[in-house]
Design a binder for these strands. Structure first.
Lengths: 308, 308
DNA sequence: GATGTTCTATGTGATTTTGTTATAGGCTGA
DNA sequence: TCAGCCTATAACAAAATCACATAGAACATC
């Protein structure tokens, strides 16, 4: 029966050339190599090396066999390294991926609820952009994510959470701030803080908000993070379309928000890696999230899409 | 130190689900699996399975680790199979790849010479088309090949052997058989046995023989094997352009050959896999080949391109 | 609630693998 | 001829691997 140790010795011998060198590299003695190779030849049923002039010379069979080996093995060393990263990243408790806006607004409320159920569970929060959220989930680097909805992706399970109002953010004192609501036409001559074009996993936002109305405002700054967009408005660079999560906070910084009339939706979801069964901790986190989302006192500007 | 056996057990356990099933598949007992996994967890430094309700449930770390494993290993079983084919194909002696025409003409002469040097070496002849010759060499399935010249290919070493006359093959009794030589223009109104279009490693033969003269004969049958072309001519399906190796043989079958005036060449080579040093047997085969090629009595219709 | 089934974990001892040291012999170049 | 390479084998030690025996936990069924 062919054994792994023989393959290791063979690989090493083929690349080193001599048993002595191979032994040195594998940190064992030369006779060990010698016998492993002899055993391998017995098991394979053909010669791997011609013993010529006291040296080992690979046969053509050895070269062909080596190809098969290299196609099938990359060695334990790589696995050791992979284990290293996994161990380094592993932690007790719950790892949550979350978009920047939510991590300063919705997430604290959820955690508040969560800690009532699990006071002692340590939590890690990975604040990343919308596109990276799915990567974190697929790579199993987080246990759960709260995020803007994204297209279906293999390996990720999604549960709708809530639909949030679409708001127009204006600098305090802006003429439009007098209105009760804003329409796309109102912004036809305004400078708008825009979105990154061709951003993965999200459609063209500008198209989404203004395309249907035939309005094409002027864009000066483009960004995909909601907080940045609020900040640009606060500094008077223009107006923008935002979600409502951070509106309270930015109101104190001189940003006024008004409902924006558009068929576009802001839908948010809770997502899990579909592998691995859900732990009890994770169930509790989900519970906490649903409670927050369904509590009108906590989330007055959204409609929950799911019940406890 | 992480060991291969642990990885095998881990792979099996992940796909089987229980230690009992994994043990059955690996033809060992359940405690052996149990211990291998426990050891692996120790070595890795993190848990791979949660012991819940008397069952093993993979952790997310296990799933991540499994990905690393599957990327790096495909198992010893595949190697065993690869060894199987290598052993089956392996033989003592010399393996030669050769095109069909040569295997009935030039090769017997070479072997005649070769056996004077090595009477006891068993020889295998792999008669394959021009395109397959290079594959056989690259896969180390043969030690040497005699073939029509082909473009340079990595892993193959080529040595020019000889340049053969280009002949026109005619059915006996054909009007053109009266001539001493044939020109492309002579064939303008003839039906010609043609070549496979777009055949790998060889240019368009029809273009090569007739293109420069602006002659476009009619083609009815197309084939890449010289013998087949001779046979079609012998049966009166048309005329063709051939190499001279088999002309003597087909003369007895009613095929007349005449020199064909064209700048095109028929160049033949001897080729070896560039890996692996050349054995003494192979050196003798090369010697025999050169002797044949350089002997005007044996090869009257070609010019040798190399000396002993 | 007793019972049988199915699963995992551990202790013990036999077997196999893997490794070391010691030793011998071949080739090569100074 | 001799030192410096190399490979191969024998004898023994250490470690890995395995089977067997056994025990405990979960769960379904009667």
């Amino acid at each position: 029966m062919i054994r792994f140790r023989q393959i290791e010795a063979f690989r090493c011998l083929m690349s080193c050339g001599t048993t002595v060198a191979a032994a040195r590299r594998m940190h064992i003695t030369q006779p060990a190599i010698s016998r492993l190779i002899a055993d391998l030849e017995d098991d394979l049923g053909f010669r791997l090396f011609n013993r010529a002039k006291g040296r080992l010379e690979p046969t053509t069979a050895a070269i062909r066999f080596q190809r098969a080996v290299e196609e099938n093995f990359l060695g334990l060393e790589r696995l050791r390294q992979a284990a290293e990263t996994i161990r380094a990243e592993e932690n007790e408790g719950l790892a949550i991926a979350c978009m920047p806006v939510l991590s300063t607004s919705l997430l604290p409320q959820i955690l508040n609820e969560f800690f009532k159920l699990r006071p002692d569970v340590p939590v890690r929060i990975d604040t990343v952009g919308n596109a990276e959220v799915t990567v974190k989930l697929q790579d199993l680097k987080v246990d759960v994510a709260i995020s803007l909805a994204f297209p279906a992706i293999a390996g990720i399970e999604v549960e709708p959470l809530l639909e949030a109002d679409v708001l127009c953010a204006l600098p305090a004192g802006h003429p439009l701030a007098e209105r009760d609501f804003i329409t796309p036409q109102d912004l036809a001559n305004e400078t708008v803080i825009g979105w990154m074009p061709n951003y993965p996993l999200s459609q063209n936002q500008e198209q989404k908000y203004f395309g249907h109305a035939g309005v094409y405002p002027r864009y000066n700054i483009r960004t995909h993070t909601s907080h940045t967009r609020y900040a640009m408005v606060a500094n008077g660079f223009g107006v923008s379309i935002v979600e409502p999560f951070a509106s309270d906070f930015w109101e104190t910084q001189g940003v006024v928000t008004r409902p924006f009339l558009t068929p576009a939706k802001h839908e948010y979801v809770i997502a899990y890696p579909s592998s691995g069964s859900r732990s009890a901790i994770l169930q509790d986190f989900r519970l906490a999230t649903l409670r927050v989302v369904n509590d009108p006192a906590l989330v007055p500007w959204g409609r929950a899409l799911t019940q406890e």
